[in-house]
Amino acid sequence: MSFSQRGAVAFRGIRKAFGAFVAIPDLNLTIAPGELVTLLGPSGCGKTTTLRMLAGLEAPTEGQILIGGEDVTRLPANRRDVSMVFQSYALFPHMSVAQNVAYGLEAGGMKSRPARAAAREGLDLVGLSGMADRLPSELSGGQQQRVAVARALVLEPQVLLLDEPLSNLDARLRRRVRTEIRELQQRLGFTAVYVTHDQEEALAVSDRIVVMLEGQVAQAGPPRELYEAPASEFIADFIGEANVIDCEVTQVSDGTATVAIGAVQQTVPAREAVPGPAKLAVRANAIRLRPGRGELPGRVLSAAYLGDHMEYEVETDLGRFFAIVAESDTPMPQGSDIAVEFRSRGLALIT
């Protein structure tokens, strides 16, 4: 199975309307060969519609979709050279694992013996070589997901599409399977388009994240860029749950800005800031709390113990803050007076 030649994907001026409702007003997006791009956003943002148009399950109202340089806009799904891993896995319960993986090959005209050989090769790729003769009901959720991935990969598609592939798994299993999918994609080098609403999942698996809002690209870039340099208040809050507060940029010099957060002075990357009022995204783990009073006094509204950290809601003159504090040995009780301070990392001016 060779994945040395993967196709690029391009959406050019894509518009998708359902009657009077315009789900995608004007989408322009390119995906490089061998890249794993995640479409991320809240419910109704257009990410699943975009994936379905790429798969050929929905037709765009206007525009072009290209895969590997070929215009596939009007081609049916079975001529797109893509494979899709569904949220529900869609395994046939009466077929063995090997039969499930070989199904698409046999349906496409491959004889049974070479199809079964290819299926076993696909199961080897995903670490299920010893389970070819089992039924799906005899597998765990994570193993069933890997069968679905193997079934898609044996077709050797130009692009692998994954639609909320981990949503049916529990939190611990999600972490493990997302790591397996990422390692497999990097090892084989195939192009993948991954849809999820889970920000942590997107950060973990992606070469690039495309955050969508109301059918448009709100921001696209590597995970670190979106987390550390959000382009808007929406991105700052959606990627990593930031506190967005008012501040005053008092000075900009050599790529660094000095900002006043109430009486607190802090230096942050300037980005494109100019002196004057601004918005500052403050990550929950960039907030330090200590008992007593300080330049920015506050009061603990709620405190939750989560094992390796504490989560606090804090009221200040600048508004409410959500804070994550790693030290949970001496929690600060509800109603206690505290001083709010900021770490140097985890603050970003919103330009």
Rank of each mutant, 00 (worst) to 15 (best):
D246T: 10
Q185S: 01
E201Q: 08
R178D: 03
F238N: 02
V244L: 08
Q185G: 00
Q216F: 02
R174Y: 04
V210T: 14
F190T: 08
P222Q: 08
G240L: 13
R208W: 04
R178A: 02
H197K: 09
P223I: 07
P223Y: 07
E233N: 11
L188T: 05
A202G: 05
A204W: 08
Q219V: 00
S232F: 08
M212S: 12
E241G: 14
N168W: 06
G215H: 10
V244K: 02
Q219R: 01
A218K: 12
I235N: 02
E180I: 04
E180K: 00
E228W: 10
A236E: 07
Q185P: 04
P222A: 05
P165G: 07
C247Y: 12
G240R: 12
M212K: 14
D198K: 12
V211I: 08
R176V: 15
S232I: 06
T191W: 05
R175V: 14
F190Q: 05
A220E: 08
R187S: 06
Y194P: 04
V217C: 13
D246C: 06
Q185N: 01
E225I: 13
A218R: 12
N168Y: 10
F234L: 06
V205Y: 07
P222F: 03
A220Y: 07
Q219P: 03
E248T: 13
E225T: 15
A171N: 11
N168L: 03
D246G: 15
E183R: 09
L173Y: 10
A171K: 13
V211S: 01
Q185E: 00
E248P: 04
P222C: 04
A231K: 07
T179C: 03
S167C: 02
N168F: 04
D237H: 10
D198Y: 02
P230R: 09
A218V: 12
R187H: 06
E233A: 09
A220V: 11
A204Y: 00
L213K: 15
